[in-house]
Every structure is written in structure tokens, then in C-alpha cells.
Write a protein that binds this DNA or RNA. Structure first.
Lengths: 209, 209, 209, 209
DNA sequence: TATGAATGAGAATTCATTCAT
DNA sequence: CATGAATGAATTCTCATTCAT
């Protein structure tokens, strides 16, 4: 009797197990997101994640082979979702300028909707967050002051200096990091291209989409 | 015997000890730089640093109170050096545009001359370098393609798309990272300001220093 | 639907269930034999056995109460079968020499026909097989060389030295292993009896069955 | 002052560290021998060994990379010592019969002096010791009974049947284990050679060293 | 009966830091 | 000052067994 019912149930819903697995996995990922964003990678124990997901420690290992693997899955899944959102948004446009614009907008919106993962991604809450903030701060302050002076002098576009400083530092450091591993361009060229891009922008003069 | 000689030397040259200390400290810092840049903080053991500096493990603690302290010293010293270089270069100028320009140039030059520490200062954790590269790559590839299309269409400035993609991603991520912890600006404003800065550049039209 | 058929079948053949049970149990035992012989007790997971028997993990516990219990069942069943074969063969004889001879022959034949289980029954833990082989090898090589020299000198019976070395080592180690836990015989006696048995054999001179 | 003394001490005894290391290692090995012999491999925790050796857990890993490695070291060192003892004893003789005799005697004596390690080697105190004893026992009992009958009938040499049964089983199982992995001889040949060796012994008739 | 997801106790291993020499 | 052996807290990962379905 019960056999028939259970058989029927099984036939009715052969995906029950799958759904269950997916749910548990989701719970683990959600718990991991929260804890990693708050305590950082090294401050988060597997046991904590499992407990936060309300499953046994061993259960974690049914879904992720390692803490690193969980982290990688988290990052990859988020990156995939971000790209899909951006692709979908850009698909409606052909003009490179429009595509760039909506791509950027979508990226920012996605980040806003996924703060936790972005915190993890950008190393906030990491062990040396504070130290790095401390040493970055003077660089940014300098740029900010110079930018503010430029704005006051009317030679720099009127943007909040605090914001502009971040944007500028981001461009400089990323370009440098990229260059460090690929020595086929001289640092002088990099320097000059960055300067041009930063001061003149991407848009060819006179063009407004 | 050797003790006597060393005592004599001590009398002769009271600074020998100081010099020796400084030298050992320098050796430890140099070894640490190399290892930290290569293996990251968690991948670098104190014992390794000591061995690479050719001193005993315990000796490390005569110069640095802690592994964290070493890291902090290293980062702070380097940051200070970088800032001093930039300040010195900028001191010769008053025009914000010139200052920005030479500041950037100095930054790049410093990075080129201090690769190891730059990675520690501005690079991301070596632990997930590979993963981050992996997930960044598609984003960058997309931006690169869009940028190339824009150049071809004559609406984007003629810069190497591979370079531009890095610069753009750097600006977007840094700005996002900065915004993540702040509640006082809307993401729409960030998005719009970033777009403006990126497309139009910092320079007010017509101005050329 | 299939439930109805199976119900019908059940009525038709009330032993079908029993046969099924026996078959599943047999499949589990066969899988266990193979895996245990290959990977040893600790190298064999219940889940692996179940998978190899093509049943669910939980099903294992419908047939064996414990991993230890399976092992014990396996070993006991095999030992029983071996003894029955030997008993049956010996039953035809009264002369102790004939009985010993056919007993031995049957033992060897059984081992040949049940390699997997023989390894489990009489082999040493798979975990350190390699190590034990490594350390045994020099002893055996020494004995082999000495034996070969004896054969060449005409003082040892003409048997393949490689074989004789194994036989001798087997006798020595087993006797030692047996003696280890007993306090009632002196090692000198053991030594002397082993020497006598080994050199003179079991048979009283002149007797040939 | 203290520097000179310590320097002097260092010069006087540059091996102090080495001796210390060797002593700690020895303590760990001794503790391991005892515990392994008593509780078996799986019943012995690293922490137990370290505690028994009166050192910290981590200290264990300064001397052995792994529990397996410790076991291997233990076995290898003992085997080496045994062989050296046997080689030394045999060196005094040329006659293969004398060499075999003193070799055997030395082996037994060595075993008596190293009971702990031999217990470990022969798997006594292993997890399934009891079970294997249980299933081996009937085989041995059968052989014992047959042997006793043979002795009573005057056709088997007068040796304690309990001893003889062990010796015979040892020869049979070792030879079988050896044969199992090398299929270049037929089991019938093995059977017949074993029978010959067992009944007639190694010594050519009439020869008495 | 059959299933396989869940469990969690248990053990191995690492490494920053200390301290006797 | 220099050394490197010793420490042990802290965490990861495994797998036999259970149980809801």
C-alpha cells in the first residue's frame, strides 16, 4: 500500500531528490555568501557554513569538495549571472556607445543587487583590509586634492573629487597589474595611453549617441 | 678567540652592530618581498622567509614582532616610498594637469621598479589570482570587443582595445568596490558619473596644458 | 501498474522474494570480495561496495548489519567452504600421510580457485603489503642464496631456491608469530624444533606411504 | 661572558643538537613501538604517541611526515637490524647447513628480543586479529589432529603437534600467497614441491653437518 | 524493500610563536 | 644576538551508519 503510494509519488515526481539536493546546495551557498562577506575567507569555517545552512558538517562535502571549491563555485556562478544580465541588456543595442552604457549600468545594478558576493570578490572584510585601506588612503587623498584643485581651476570636469579619485586609482592600478605580467609594451606607452584615455575619455569629440 | 676579535671590532666600530642589524633586517625584508609576491601571505611561512634570508627561524622575531607586523611594515614602507616619489615629482608643478600627469608617470615607473611590492600593495590575494583572472577574462573580452567595434565605427578613441578594456574594468570595479560600503550615494549616480568620466575624460574641453 | 504485476508474481511464486534477496546478497558479497581483496578493509567503502553491486547505499544494511559483519561473514563463509572441501577430500583416507597430502592439495586447489578470498583469509593487510614485501625481500633473497649454495654443494634437496625460500620464510614467520604471545615455550626450543622439522621433514625415515 | 661560554659549549660539542634530535626521535619510536604493539595501527593516534613520548603533537611531525611513515621507518629499521644480526652470525660459517642453522637461530633470538615490533609486524593486535584467529583455528586444529595421529602411528616425526601445525600452516600459506601473484608455475607443482619439502625436509639423506 | 541524502564524531596535520641553549 | 627544536590550538575532511521518503 504505502509502497504503491511511494511508487506513485516517485513516478509523479522523479525530480524530488534533485530538487532537494538543489535546495540544500542553495542553502549552503546562501549561508556561505553571508558568512564570507562578513568574516572573510579565512575567518569562515566550514563548520560555520554548515551550521548556518542548518545541515551537518559532512553535508557540506556532498556539495563542495573544499572551501576553495565552494568559493570558486560562488564566484563563477555570480560572474556568469552578471554576464548574462549584461549580455541580455546589451542585446537590444547595436551602437557601441549604447552597448557600453547599458553594459555599465547593468554591471552597477547587478553589483548593487549582489553586495555580499561583491564584498567577497573585492576582498572587503579580508584580513588586511584595514591595512590596505590605510596605505591606499593617502594616494587617493592626494589624487582627490589634485582633482579638486583642477575642478576649482576649471580645468577638470566637475565631478565629486572623492569619486573621481577612486575611478582614477582603479584605472591606474588595474592597468599596472595587467602590464606587470606582460612585458611586451613599455611602461611609458602605458603611461601615455592611460593619460590620454583618462583626460580625453573614450568618446571621439563631437560624437554624442 | 673569534669572540675576542668581535669584541675588538665592537670597540673599534660601535656602529657595526647597527649596520649588521640593518643588514639582517634588510635581508629578511627582501626575502619576504619575494616570497609574499610569489606565494601570497598565507602561502608564505616564517620559516621560509628566515631560510631565504639565511638566518634561523627565531631570528625573524628579533626583527619583527609578528608575521602580520612584517607584512604591515613592508606595505607601509613601500607605500611611503611610492608617495615620496610621487610627491617629489609633483612638487615641481602647480598646474593640476601637470601634477596629475607626472603623478601618474611616477606611479607607473615606481610599479615597474618595484614589481614584487606592487603586487603586494595593489594586487589581489595571490590565493585566488587564477580564479579571479578566469572570471574577469570574459568581461574583459566583451569590453574589448565592444571597444574595438566602437573604434572601427569611429566613435571611440583609437586606443588598443586590450588596453582600454583593462582600464575600463579597473575603473568600474574600483568604483564599485568603493561604493559597496557606502550608503550615501545611489548606484544610479555612480553609474552616470562613471559613464561621464569614462566617455568624456577629466579634461574640460578645449583645455590643453 | 508494475506494482500489480509484481503482486501477481508474488502470488504465483512466493519464493521469488527469497531468491531476489539471496541474489542481492550474493551480488554484495561478490562485490565486497573483489574490492576487499584489491583495496583492503580500510580502503573499501560501503558506498563503493553498494555501487559495485548496483544497489543503493542503504540497501547494504538490509543484508549486513555492519561493515565488520560483512567482513566476518565473508571470511567465515569462505573458511567454512575451504574446510569442507578439505574434509571431504581427506574423508576418503585413513593414513595420516595420505590425509596430509590430499589436505594440502585441496588447500592449494581451493586457494587457486578463490584467490580473492584467499588473500582476505590468509593474506596480510593490503595497507602495508608493499612495505612488507620490501622488507621481506632481502631476507628471502638471503635464504634463497644460501639454499642455492646448499643445493650446489649437494647438501640440500634439489628444489627451486625461490620456492624453498618462500616455504622456509613462511615456516619461520608463522612459528614466530605463534610463539610471540606464548610464554610457555623457550625460543631456543622453538628454534631447535623448527630446525629439525625443516631439515628432516615430517616423515619418519624409511616410511613411504 | 655567557656568550663565550655558549660559544665554547657550541664549539666543544657541535653535535649537541644532533644528539638531542636523535634522542627525541628515539623517544617517539619507542613510544610508538609500545602503543602500536598494544593497540594496533588504527587504534593508535599520533597524539597518543606524542604524549607517550612526552612531546607535543607537532613535534611528531618534525621527525615523521606521517603515521604511515613512522610505521615504515619502524619496520625498516627493525628489518635492517635483524638482517645485520643474521649476517653477522652467518659470517662465521661457510657450510650452508651451518649458515642456515645460525641464521634461523639468530632470527628467533632477534624476534624474542623485539617482541613489540614483531607483534606489529605480524598484525597481532590488529583490528581483525580475533576473527582471523577464529577462522584459522579449525585449519590448524585439523592439521594438529592429523599430525598427532601420524606421530601416534609412528609415521610422523615426534614433534609437538601444536607446533608442527603452525609450522605447516605457515609454509602452506606463504607459498600460496607467493604463488598467487606469479602464475608461471602450476599449482600442482607447488603442491607437490611443498609436499616433498615438508615430508622429507631440506637435508639430503645421510648428510649431517 | 530500496534509496541516497544527511549526519557528526573523530583524527591528521599545519605553522606562528616561544625559549632553552 | 642567533638558533632551531618544541609547542598545541585550530581546522579540515572522511565515512560508517541512519532514516525519511
Amino acid at each position: 500500500m504505502s509502497t504503491r503510494i511511494s511508487t506513485a509519488a516517485k513516478l509523479q515526481d522523479p525530480n524530488r531528490q534533485d530538487r532537494r539536493r538543489a535546495e540544500t546546495r542553495g542553502r549552503l551557498l546562501a549561508a556561505a555568501k553571508r558568512l564570507l562577506a562578513t568574516n572573510g575567507f579565512h575567518g569562515t569555517k566550514i563548520a560555520d557554513i554548515a551550521a548556518a545552512a542548518d545541515v551537518g558538517t559532512g553535508t557540506f562535502y556532498l556539495y563542495f569538495s573544499t572551501k576553495d571549491a565552494l568559493f570558486a563555485d560562488l564566484v563563477r556562478e555570480t560572474a556568469l549571472a552578471a554576464r548574462e544580465a549584461m549580455d541580455a541588456a546589451k542585446a537590444a543595442h547595436v551602437d557601441p556607445r549604447r552597448r557600453a552604457r547599458v553594459g555599465g549600468e547593468t554591471f552597477f545594478r547587478f553589483a548593487a543587487e549582489n553586495r555580499d558576493v561583491f564584498k567577497i570578490l573585492f576582498g572587503h572584510s579580508a584580513q588586511f583590509d584595514e591595512l590596505l585601506r590605510e596605505v591606499h588612503q593617502p594616494f587617493i587623498a592626494d589624487i582627490e586634492a589634485d582633482f579638486a584643485a583642477g575642478v576649482a581651476a576649471g580645468v577638470f570636469r566637475d565631478l565629486p573629487p572623492a569619486f573621481a579619485a577612486q575611478a582614477i586609482v582603479g584605472m591606474l592600478t588595474q592597468v599596472t597589474s595587467w602590464w606587470i605580467d606582460r612585458q611586451d609594451v613599455s611602461i611609458e606607452e602605458i603611461s601615455s595611453m592611460t593619460h590620454r584615455l583618462l583626460t580625453q575619455g573614450t568618446a571621439v569629440q563631437g560624437e554624442q549617441p
